[in-house]
Structures are given as C-alpha cells and as structure tokens.
C-alpha cells in the first residue's frame, strides 16, 4: 500500500483476501471515510452479492444513502441500523422502513444487537456482513466496558452465523483502549488511514 490514503479499490482488494466469517478492524482516516464506505459496500453488497447490514452511529442513514447514490453504488442489498437519527430529533429525515431500522439512542446497545439479529434472520442472502460505523462514535455515548461487552457478544454471534464483521475505526479519534478493544475481537486488521512511516 502506498504511503498515501488507501483508495476504495485497495480497501476492497484487502477485504477480498479475508477468509469467510472474519471479523475485520478497518482503521481509516476522516479524509478517506467515503472511500472506505465505497470499498466496503461495493465489495460486499454488489460484487459478493451479500446482504450488508450497516450500523451507523456516525452520520444518519439518509446521509449514507445520499453518499452511495452520489457514488453510483447500488444499495439494493444494504440494510441500515440507524442509531443516530432518532436522537437528532427531526434533524434527520430517516424513517423506519423495510431498509432502515431506527435505534432510539446509541446508548441502547442491546437494541442495536437485536436489530442486527432481526435483519440477519430476515435475510435470505447466503452471505452476510455487518459493518459497524464506527466504534469511535459509539464510544462517545458508551464507556469502554460496555462497548467491549457488546463487541464480544456481537462478533461471536456473527461468527457463529458465518457472517463477516467489519468494524470501522477513525484513527484521528481513536485511543489505545479503543484499539485494544477492537483488536481483541477481530481476526484481521486493515490500515487504510494515514500510514505511519518507518
């Protein structure tokens, strides 16, 4: 990988090498957030034809849908668990529908797990991937103890169902505690941020 920020294609290529049902930590920079979304969604939802459950705690599902549309990425197989729109109190137009499930607050981590479970059960697709966007946004609202517990239970459950997990980490907002928490549950790490030299 070049010392510059990883492109959507490079991210997709690295993800493609991951064995099935892997849990992957994807460390990115705020500057290539859109490339990461593009790389992950396009690879799993379109190239691999997997139902993609996108847990968003950073920006609203409506905003991500607009991004995907602007990038000309088909979102037919993308289902959102939106943890942020409800607490925006009308500032987001995201509404509950077949493709979008709202969680009242990013502090309701059990409900996040329940909505993921619901979508996994409802899915007819053979392969499934759950994208957590991002652990840093969830860390704004929750302490590390409860987040560690969430990741442990969620990732173990998804692994037993042969589903991929991709946990997005924003390197500018990360701490050693958050990195350790993610590394503990993930099998692989992809660094798509500003690569350290040497």
């Amino acid at each position: 990988m070049s010392p510059e920020l990883a492109s959507a294609q490079q991210i997709a290529d690295e993800l493609l090498e991951m064995p099935e049902a892997s849990a992957v930590s994807l460390q990115m920079s705020v500057d290539n957030y859109l490339d990461v979304i593009r790389g992950v969604v396009d690879l799993f939802a379109n190239k691999k034809k997997m139902d993609t459950i996108y847990v968003t705690a950073t920006i609203s599902s409506e905003a991500i849908k607009r991004v995907l549309e602007a990038l000309d990425i088909d979102s037919e197989r993308v289902f959102f668990v939106d943890c942020i729109s409800h607490i925006m109190m009308g500032a987001s137009t995201a509404a509950q529908d077949e493709k979008t499930t709202l969680v009242e607050s990013p502090t309701m981590l059990e409900n996040l797990m329940l909505k993921v479970e619901y979508l996994i059960r409802r899915s007819q697709s053979e392969g499934k991937v759950v994208v957590i966007d991002s652990i840093n946004s969830l860390a704004i609202h929750n302490n590390n103890w409860i987040l560690s517990e969430l990741l442990h239970i969620l990732v173990s459950g998804l692994r037993s169902r042969d589903a991929y997990t991709v946990i997005l980490t924003v390197e500018e907002h990360s701490t050693p505690d958050i990195s350790n928490m993610v590394n503990l549950v993930c099998d692989h790490g992809i660094h798509a941020g500003k690569l350290r030299e040497g």
Binding site: E110, L114, E117, I146, E149
Partner: peptide, 15 residues
C-alpha cells in the same frame, strides 16, 4: 424485542 420474526432476546450488557 418484539419483531415480525417473533420475540428476539440478547443478554443484558452489564458494562
């Protein structure tokens, strides 16, 4: 959670 797929359960997180 009460869902169209039935009652779903997850462990309560203790944090």
């Amino acid at each position: 959670d009460l869902t169209p797929m039935g009652v779903l359960l997850v462990p309560l997180l203790k944090g």
